[in-house]
Structures are given as C-alpha cells and as structure tokens.
Amino acid sequence: MSELLLDKRGSIAYIILNRPDKLNAFSKEMIDLWIAALTEIKDDPEIRVGVLTGAGRAFCAGGDVKSMIAGEGFIGKTNEEDDDFISTPLHVKNSLWKNIQRIPLLMDEIDKPMIAMINGHAMGAGLDMALMCDIRICSEKAKLGEAYIHAGIVPGDGGGYYLPRIIGMDKALEMLWSGEVKTAKEAKEMNLVTHVVPHEELEDFTLDYVEKLINGPQEVIQMMKRVVKEGMSMSLRQSLDYVSSQMALSVFHEDHQKAIEKMKRK
C-alpha cells in the first residue's frame, strides 16, 4: 500500500501519512508522494482546503531513525551503488534540498488553508510539518516534541524557521536544546497548537472547522493568508502598501458584492 494517501473529498484534500507500523516516520517514497500531493492541492482549483494527518496512532515520528542508522532515511539512500549516495557534507546538503526541504517551499506557495489534524504523537520533523500548516488541531492524547538533540542533528526541514515565529525565540531554543516532550495541554498553553479537543471528537471538530472555510469567500481567504504571511517579513509601510493592493482587488471581486448583499438581508 502507498506510504502516503491523497484522499479528495469534495473540496477538501486529505494528505494521510500511511506508515502506521513506523509511526508514520518519513521515507524517501513518502517524501516524493508528499511533494506530488502538495503540488496537486496547489494547482487543483476544485480543492479549497488541505488537511494533513497520520494513519494509526501517530501523526508523524519524523525521520525514520532505524533506516537512517541502516544507511537510508529522508535525506536519501547511502548505498554506494545509488545515485543519492551520501559521502560528503555537500551531498547531505544537496539531498536535503532536493527532498524534504521541497515540502516547506511548496507549502509557502499554497494560499489555500492548510490544517494539521494531529491525531497522535508529532516528533521532530513530524512536528515541524505540522508547524508549516496554518492551523493545528490536536488530539488531547497527542504529545509533541523537537527530538533533534537526541540524534545530535539540527532541524533540517524548516523547524528552526517556524518554531520561533510561533512560540517565540526563547521557548523555541528551550524545546530544541532540551528535546522535552510536551503534552497537548502544554502545547496549547505555549501556542504551539491552535486547538486541543477530545481524541474521539478530533475528526468531527476538524471537519466542522474546515467546512466553515470551504463555504467562505475563497479569494478573500487566500488573500488574507498571503497578507499575513508576507507581513511577517515586511516593514509596516511595505505591509500597508501590499494590503492596499489586495484591498483594491477584493472590493471589485464578486465575493465582496455577495457579502454586501447578504449583510443587507440581515
């Protein structure tokens, strides 16, 4: 069976990490399928929202440590007969760039809402993949942590970029330096996740949340996402100039006219 599933249900596209026996730890095949799934979500006009989740009892355990020890893993195989043989630091760098680092770059191009439905433990790069999403809805049973320190490596997929922007630099460094695992409640208190819900209500809560998004004005929702993301790296003047352009487009869009008519009827 495929190690990652793209399940399109109407306007919602579910990306399901599908290595439950490995706690959905990354493999090269999974990464390739993940990139293809994100590309489809970005380019398919019928898809309005993407939801990322895991099969089985885990969300994602990050890199497959056993495979990495054996000479494989998310940075590519290390078999000397393989084209992706990891023999130098430059090969490691290039393999990351060609593989797992394509995921955050693709995520950055998607203006549609992307929701992480964290059904179980999210560790290391698995947590970082949830951080790349816009909203994180978490089961009360889940635990979350940055485990890189235990493997003696740095976060290679964007965790060092996303984590401090979400929880602040001091808390991000503390999580990375300690490798401490957080409960869902602790993660919510430090703004690592958006919502924590009872495990048995996770899917229904997420679907209700997503349905509000898919029934809203799509162009405006996507504009809002881009305004917020671009504003993170702009000065106030630049942000105001950018948002004025988006406003000029939105007021002439049919979604605005429909919203005004709806307000008049209330």
Rank of each mutant, 00 (worst) to 15 (best):
E174S: 13
D128I: 03
Y148M: 08
H150F: 15
N79L: 12
M117A: 09
I75C: 08
G168A: 14
P104Q: 13
P155D: 11
S178L: 06
Q101I: 07
L106P: 07
L106V: 12
I103Q: 02
I118A: 06
S178D: 09
H121M: 14
G126H: 00
G179I: 05
K141D: 05
K77M: 10
L106E: 11
L176D: 02
M175G: 04
L106C: 09
D134Y: 00
G160H: 03
R136P: 03
I153D: 01
R102C: 11
G158Q: 13
D82A: 15
G159Y: 00
G124E: 01
L105A: 10
P113V: 07
M123K: 01
D170V: 15
W177C: 13
G152I: 10
K143W: 00
L127H: 00
K171D: 15
Y161M: 12
A147K: 02
E174K: 15
Y161R: 08
N119F: 07
I166L: 14
F85I: 08
C138S: 06
M169S: 15
R102S: 08
M117F: 05
G124C: 10
E72D: 14
G159T: 04
A116I: 10
G158P: 10
T78P: 05
I110K: 05
D128N: 11
L106K: 13
L96C: 15
S95Q: 06
F74D: 10
G156R: 00
S178G: 13
K98P: 02
F85P: 08
H150W: 13
L176E: 07
G71P: 08
E109I: 07
E140L: 03
R165D: 11
S178I: 05
A142H: 02
M169K: 15
S139A: 10
D134P: 00
I75A: 09
M107Y: 07
A122F: 01
M129R: 11
G159Q: 02
D128Q: 04
E140Y: 03
M114D: 03
M129K: 09
I86E: 08
L144M: 12
V92Y: 08
L90H: 09
I110T: 11
K171T: 13
K112L: 12
C138E: 00
D84R: 14
